[in-house]
Structure formats: C-alpha cells, structure tokens
Design a binder for these strands. Structure first.
Length: 555
RNA sequence: GCGCCAGUGGCUCAGUUGGAUAGAGCAACGGACUUCUAAUCCGUAGGCCGGGGGUUCGAAUCCCUCCUGGCGCGCCA
C-alpha cells in the first residue's frame, strides 16, 4: 500500500521536473509514507514536500502544490488528496480500495502478511542453550519463547530458519554435575558427606542419585571414583537434557539441531581452529597462553583462548562453534543470550569480523531477567542454592499460552515482572485472554450463523459498499497494517511488536462487536460483516501462530 | 573507573526507525447483559516523555552532558 503511494509520488516528482514546476532534480532515495496518528490527517501522509523545500529554495507548501498537481489521481483509489499543516500531503483512500485488503486476506489466508525479503537466505536462531546441569527455570522460558517466536517471525519474512540448541557438555560443569550426583549417592549409602557449595544444590540431584543408585549401585562401586563421577556426569547430563527437551516441547518449542560442544572436541575442531587463527595471524602466543587479537576488530582487550596450562577456554569453543555455524552455510546467525552476557558481544562480533564476515551477520538478542512475583511478593530465586521456580512449574500453573504471551509482550531487552497470580487470572488483567477471546467470539458468531443457515460469503458475492461504518473501516485499516508490522518486527528482530499489534486489533474488534450486530442484519450487510470477521480471524490466528500461542475456537 | 541497557500518568509498558494534539492495560470513579460469549464495551480523571544543552521546518525518538537504576568488565563457564 505504502509502496504504491511511493511509486505514484516518484512518478509525480519526475513529471514536475519535466514540466519545470520543480527545479532541483533531487530524487530522495527513500520517500517516507506514513499512517498519521490522527485520522483527520488522512489514511497516509508524506513529508516529501518538506524534505524537498530546502533544495527547492521555496516553501514546503509550494512544493506540495506542484507535487499534488502532477499526481495521477486515480479516482478508484483516492477519495481526496490535501495539503495540510507545514506541508504534509495527506491521502484519503476510497472505502472500496480499502476493502481490497479483505480480498487479499481471503486469498492468502494464513500466508497474509508474510514477507519475502528474507527469501533465499538461511538463518539460524540459537537459543535456550542452558547447561544440562539442571532443569529449565523461568528465565530460560523467556529465552525459549523469544527465540522460538523470533524464528517463526523470520520464517514469515521469507527466511529459511533453523532452531538450534547448543549443549555445553564439555566444560567442568559436567564434572561438577557428576560429583554432585556421586555425593548424593554416598549419602544414600548412609555416609555423611560434606556437600560443597560449588556443587548443584537442587533437589533434582537427589532424585537422579536415587534413580541411578537403585539401578547401578553395584556397577558404580566397581569403578574408581573418577570413573564413577564421569559415568554419572554423562548419564545425568543426558537425563537432564531429555527433561529439558520434554519441557520445551510442551512449551511449544522444538529444535532442528541439538549441537553438542563435546563433538567440537571429539573432532578436534577447537584445536584446529586455534591453528587456523594462528596461521591467519589472528592469534598470538604470549605468557604461555594463546590470545585472540580481538582488539583489531573493535573489542577492548584481547582474549585468551588457550590458557598457560594448556586448557582451552569456553571462548575458544565459542569461536570454533561460530565458525562452524558460518561454514554450515548460514547467511545470518542469531544468538539469543541472557542480558548478563552482554559483555560478550564485542568479542563475538570481533570473531565474526575476523572470519571475514560482516559484523551484522551475527545478531545477538539479549533477554533480560525475569522477576518472578506471586501476588506482588517477590519469589526468591538462586540457582546456586537450588531455590528456583522451574519453567515446568510455571507452565503447569499458568498455562503455556499465558506464559508465552507474558514473555513476548515486552521488548526482550527490558526487565520483566512475571506475577504468577496475575498470569493465572483469566480476566481483563490478562491480555492474552483478551486476544484469544476475540478469536473465540468470531468463531462463535460464525457457528451461530452456520446454525441459522447463513452461508459464508465468497469474495465475488460480497457487497463491499455495506462496509462503511467507521469502526469497520478502522478494523480494515488495521488489518492492512499487518504486513508492514510483520516486516518491521522481522527487520528489528522484535516479535513483541506482534503482541502489541494483536492487542490493538482485538480491542478494535471487541469495540465493533459491542456496537454492532452481524446476524439479523440485512443479508448483504450480514455477509459483508462475516467476510470482514473472517479476515480478522485469519490475522489473529496467523499472528498468534507466529508467537506460538493457540487460537481457541471456544473459551 | 570503563562499557552495555534502561528511565514515558499512581503501577506495568507501547510508541510504526525524525512527523501533526504522546497511546494502551492495571488501579480509581460513573455507566451498559431479555441480543452473535460481560474473559466484553462506553465514559471520566490522570503527562515538563529523568534534568540541561544542541542538531532542524519538526525530537520521547538523533548528538553531547549530568543524574538515577540494572548488568558486565577473569588465563571462569
């Protein structure tokens, strides 16, 4: 829609220059067309005349007059074109033209609003990637919802998308896991053990110990302590990861690839990558350690990849891992991280630059902490003490949809208060039900219409002149903005914009519903309204689908 | 000390990448169910967009500076 206007304006501009009504010859690369906040300022407006005025050395209004004079005003499109304020050109479109949006929605169905700017590009979204040393907690849930919705959003923008979970199964946290289970096993045999602070304190360790000790006590006792711990680490990690996968699946998140850090070592990829970097002159040896020269790529200090004791750092794995991502052919790589890791961004961007890629080929999405409340009271959480609320518990208590909505309705990079009582409340306090309710209402109306023998209208049969109420046009105009909302959200990597969009759409629908009836009106009106409702339903369910939230037919 | 992020009605947040008179929801107050779902709607009230300076036709949005809060600054992961 905006694109059409841009073309018309560009066309008019050329004509002005040909006819000499404008003289500068300036063609702005991007003509700004916007939807004014105030409906009195038209359906669309452009500031083109104001932008050109200085170059033309005349007043914006004069420029606007020349432009409007040269516009090919198609009568089926424009109801009115006016010059207003300091020099805006306001466009008013005909109702019939707006109704074309409904036809488009009917034609495209669930694909309405989807974009093509990502076509031909492969993008990988890596998210959650929690260490397999304990169950997912509420903070991971936010990362999961954000990464998953972002992936769906990018798919809707035309990208080929893969979801990936990076398993940190190579560091010494796995050993700590094994040791934690081992110690709990000792306790089961009645030995008093001092359980160290740096071990995992959560009750789930005891559960794991009970399970494995009941099954493998004899085998484990034949092993040396080192071997036993190693075996328990491997088993425990697998077990916990399976639990994580199950939690995520129930949360509506499924990964295309579970990528194990350990496989990097098994293929010797970390070591080979270090050699590669040295060879390329991107890494150097100093004080018996191997450093990555990240300052050459904008970082504020160089980073150790291999310590003087010969052990590689976590960063070294990350470099190898990200190099591998690009070697797998992704055009764009997105990492979703907890905001406390933001200090890592410069060095990872440096890595990307050092590998000869554009820094923008890696995008890092930061997800802020979740502040868990219950009835306004803060719920204490600390992973170290093992006192935390798991994603599973929250999901069971408030439901998947409400949970995902809460995580997705704000910018990911702002702290989030998550009140369990509020989220659970199925009332107006809770926007997700407000949106779903709009969808359910439409289904209900359609069901009733069906029961009364009213047929669902086909595009060709719809009398679009019957849709002339301000509330109807407002709805249609908002539906028309869905594609650009998807595009803007996708370009900014901000799925929360869809949540805001949905809230607005649901609000407009509820207002319309309360004010006007569908069934019982004259046939042409009834059918036209049903046609409109179909479009609203299509967009609501489509947008909810991107967010991974269900669109119930009944509530 | 340095860096990143944030600061918008009492509370929680949007704000279409610089547009015209800054928007929702909650909380408060007053109304609307014999109707397709009241999990809804309508109305009232509430603002120096942290402070100050700058950029221009125009700033919540961009730049500088200060204040406040969160996070991060390891040969940890």
């Amino acid at each position: 829609m905006k694109e059409i206007l841009r073309d018309l304006l560009r066309d008019a501009l050329h004509r002005c220059y040909e006819e000499g009504t404008l003289v500068s010859g300036e063609i702005p690369p991007e003509i700004v067309v916007e939807v004014p906040a105030n409906a009195e300022h038209g359906d669309f407006a452009t500031n083109l005349a104001m932008v050109l005025a200085r170059k033309e050395k005349t007043s914006p209004r004069k420029v606007a007059e020349a432009l409007v004079g040269a516009l090919r005003c198609r009568e089926d499109v424009f109801r009115q074109v006016e010059i207003a304020g300091p020099g805006f050109i306001n466009f008013f479109l005909t109702n019939r033209f707006w109704c074309g949006v409904l036809e488009e929605i009917a034609r495209k169905g669930a694909g309405y609003g989807h974009q093509t700017f990502g076509a031909g590009k492969r993008v990988q979204v890596e998210f959650v990637s929690a260490n397999p040393t304990g169950p997912l907690h509420i903070g991971h849930g936010r990362g999961a919802a954000t990464g998953d919705a972002l992936a769906s959003l990018l798919k809707a923008c035309g990208y080929e998308v893969e979801r990936e979970y990076y398993i940190n199964d190579a560091g010494n946290q796995m050993r700590t896991l094994g040791r934690s289970i081992w110690l709990r096993c000792q306790e089961l045999d009645g030995r008093a053990v001092a359980f160290p602070e740096d071990c995992y304190q959560g009750g789930y360790i005891r559960d794991l110990a009970r399970e494995i000790w009941g099954r493998e006590r004899e085998i484990l006792l034949t092993l040396s302590e080192e071997e036993a711990i190693d075996r328990l680490a491997q088993w425990g990690g697998k077990k916990i990861l399976a639990g994580i996968a199950a939690d995520l699946k129930d949360f509506g998140v499924e990964f295309d690839c579970w990528y194990s850090e350990r496989t990097l070592f098994e293929r010797d990829a970390v070591r080979k990558n270090l050699d590669y970097l040295v060879e390329k002159g991107l890494a150097y040896r100093q004080d018996d350690a191997l450093w990555f020269a990240s300052t050459r790529f904008g970082d504020d200090k160089d980073r150790v990849m291999s310590r003087s004791n010969g052990v590689t750092t976590y960063f070294a794995s990350d470099v190898a891992y990200h190099r591998d991502k690009f070697e797998r052919g992704f055009d764009l790589v997105i990492d979703v991280w907890g905001a406390d890791h933001h200090g890592y961004i410069p060095r990872m961007k440096a890595v990307v630059a050092a590998l000869g890629r554009s820094r923008d080929d890696l995008q890092v999405i930061l997800v802020q902490l979740v502040n868990l409340l219950r009835g306004g009271q803060q719920v204490a959480m600390s992973t170290r003490s093992g006192e935390f609320v798991t994603l599973r518990e929250v999901m069971d208590e408030v439901g998947k949809d409400a949970c995902r909505y809460y995580f997705l309705c704000r910018r990911s990079d702002s702290k989030l208060d998550f009140d369990l009582e509020l989220a659970k409340e199925q009332s107006s306090n809770n926007p997700v039900y407000y949106i779903q309710y709009a969808h359910a209402r439409i289904c209900s109306i359609k069901g009733k219409a069906m029961a009364e023998g009213i047929r669902m209208p086909e595009t060709a049969d719809v009398d679009f002149t019957a849709l002339d109420l301000p509330e109807e046009l407002a709805l249609i105009k908002h539906l028309a903005r869905f594609p650009e909302t998807v595009a803007a959200a996708g370009r900014a990597f901000e799925p929360h914009r869809l949540a805001a969009y949905l809230l607005e759409l649901a609000g407009q629908f509820h207002a319309y519903y309360n004010q006007h009836r569908i069934i019982g009106e004259k046939r042409n009106i009834c059918e036209a309204r049903l046609y409109l409702l179909n479009a609203v339903q299509t967009v609501i369910s489509g947008a909810l689908a991107i967010l991974g939230i269900s669109a119930p037919e009944r509530m």
